[in-house]
């Protein structure tokens, strides 16, 4: 007699916890041939605000961790993902309706991307910062620091459910930002499974917060939220993203405009979520 499977309940990931939406809403996720896969939580405005609060609370501690430590934590994410390659590949194949080999390739690309960004954690400041030869008795140095809380819409197109969210989250958090990310609406399951990996990879609770549901409904609240410092509209190309950019102007958020597909892995992306601080230290007279 075959064993009856135990399906997973997919919930949100906020502040290191896995709550259902406070609204009590869920929506149906289907795979190839409209096969029912799961009911995902449909996050509300309140969930988005809770997520921003959790992200704000977690950010200073994460930013104070050493760069070496943050790099190891990101690398740890890759390690734990590697151990679950099969699980993620099955999930990607089911939700995206792609062949197993294609699903596995996406998982592998996501793992490798975590490794690539992990290595940047203790290097980007060296590449982006410098000493400045000012005309006076000062030691003057410019260094990049995290911008703060980032809100993001993960890529929404087909074939990006795990790689897309990785390409948005990793470059934002490696410098010490925290993030609230709205997962792929149609294929959010890998994002929630990724949250389980984050929760067990020494990423402090609240550093990454994952919302599932309708980006069109949630994104405006994040774009106008006064405690969000930057907005990554990566996967917002089908939303009214210009309106989101306009809403973000009220608190002068840094805004990355939509980018089709999976965003390229670049140092530029890391730098976008940093601020340059320049410190003048007076040198005494000898």
């Amino acid at each position: 007699m075959s064993r009856l499977a135990v399906p997973k309940t997919y919930k949100l990931y906020i502040g290191g916890q896995f709550p259902r939406s406070e609204s009590g809403r869920s929506y149906e996720i289907v795979g190839a041939g409209d096969r029912f896969l799961a009911n995902a939580a449909k996050a509300s405005r309140k969930d988005a605000r809770d997520a921003v609060r959790a992200a704000r609370a977690a950010q200073p501690g994460w930013a104070r961790a050493t760069a070496y430590n943050r790099g190891q934590v990101l690398y740890r994410v890759a390690e734990v993902l590697e151990g679950r390659r099969g699980q993620f590949a099955d999930e990607v194949a089911a939700v995206e309706g792609v062949a197993d080999a294609e699903a596995l390739a996406e998982v592998d690309a996501a793992i490798d991307l975590w490794v690539w960004y992990a290595g940047w954690a203790d290097k980007f400041a060296q590449v982006m910062g410098n000493a400045n030869p000012v005309a006076g008795p000062y030691f003057n140095i410019s260094v990049p620091e995290p911008t703060g809380v980032v809100a993001a819409v993960a890529p929404q197109s087909r074939g990006t459910s795990l790689l897309g969210i990785t390409a948005v989250v990793a470059p934002a958090i490696l410098s010490g930002n925290s993030i609230v990310v709205v997962a792929s609406e149609r294929a959010p399951l890998s994002a929630i499974s990724l949250s389980e990996v984050l929760a067990t990879s020494d990423v402090p609770g609240g550093v990454v917060n994952v919302l599932t549901g309708s980006p069109a409904e949630i994104a405006p609240w994040l774009a106008s939220h006064a405690d969000v410092n930057a907005l990554d509209l990566c996967g917002a190309e089908r939303l009214e993203w210009v309106d989101l950019q306009i809403a973000a102007a009220q608190t002068l958020k840094r805004v990355l405009t939509p980018e089709p597909g999976v965003p390229a892995a670049t140092l530029e992306r890391i730098g976008f979520f940093t601020e340059t601080k320049t410190v003048w230290h007076t040198k005494s007279m000898l």
Partner: peptide
């Protein structure tokens, strides 16, 4: 300004 950096 510093967002525009060398590519991977």
């Amino acid at each position: 300004p510093k967002s525009s950096r060398s590519k991977k």
